[in-house]
Amino acid sequence: MDLLFEAEAKGVPATELIAQRREVFDTDDSVGEMTGYAVQAVEGVVADSDQIDAIITARLENWEFDRLPAVDRAILRLGTWELLYAPDVDVKVVLDEAVKLATALSTDDSPAFVNGVLDRIAVLAPQVRAATSGE
């Protein structure tokens, strides 16, 4: 979520930030290695960003996507990707983690808002997950 937020703030692709951190890690391991699930999720969000943003936008009620707090956009993008393209992550876990992030990092209204939007997106999860897994 941090990489997605930072990338939007800097106006660069999040995958570029991953590459930069990998270069720095070669000489400074305090940065943290860029591997594993976090990289997979960020790369997935970047690869499907237009579709993810469209899915989120279609499920907003009385809000415009660009007017959402940037933190909420990052949380919703990550949560949407996980709901639709990470079949090994339980839907309830995705919702719970997104609400925790919104509680810790965003406005007082954000946890309920994020939960509501992702709950509407979760309805799509079984069909999309089945289609992408080849079932």
Rank of each mutant, 00 (worst) to 15 (best):
Thr35Leu: 00
Asp88Ile: 05
Gln20Lys: 04
Leu118Arg: 00
Ser106Gly: 10
Arg22Ile: 01
Asp2Ile: 11
Gln127Pro: 08
Thr15Tyr: 03
Asn62His: 12
Arg67Cys: 11
Asp72Pro: 14
Asp48Ile: 11
Lys100Phe: 04
Ile121Trp: 08
Ser30His: 15
Val45His: 15
Ala131Thr: 01
Val89Phe: 00
Glu97Val: 01
Glu61Asp: 15
Ala131Lys: 00
Lys10Glu: 14
Leu83Gln: 08
Val46Ser: 05
Asp96Tyr: 07
Phe65Ile: 11
Val128Tyr: 09
Val12Glu: 11
Ser49Lys: 08
Gln20Met: 06
Phe25Arg: 12
Ile56Glu: 07
Leu83Asp: 07
Glu16Met: 10
Val24Tyr: 01
Val123Lys: 10
Gly116Lys: 02
Gln20Ile: 04
Ala130Lys: 11
Leu95Phe: 03
Ile18Cys: 06
Ala131Leu: 02
Ala104Cys: 13
Asp2Leu: 05
Thr57Ile: 09
Arg21Phe: 00
Val89Leu: 04
Lys92Trp: 05
Val94Glu: 04
Gly44Lys: 04
Ala14His: 04
Asp119Trp: 04
Val128Phe: 05
Ala9Asp: 13
Leu3Gly: 09
Ile121Asn: 11
Leu101Tyr: 06
Trp81Gly: 14
Ala86Met: 05
Val39Ser: 06
Thr15Cys: 10
Asp119Ile: 04
Arg21Leu: 02
Val45Cys: 15
Asp90Cys: 02
Ala58Arg: 11
Glu8Asp: 05
Asp90Met: 04
Glu23Asp: 09
Tyr37Met: 08
Ile18Pro: 02
Ala38Asp: 10
Tyr85Gly: 00
Val89Ala: 00
Asp29Gly: 10
Arg77Leu: 02
Val89Ser: 00
Ala104His: 14
Ile56Phe: 05
Asn62Asp: 13
Ala130Pro: 10
Glu97Lys: 08
Leu60Val: 13
Phe5Lys: 11
Val99Glu: 10
Val31Tyr: 06
Thr107Arg: 06
Thr107Gly: 01
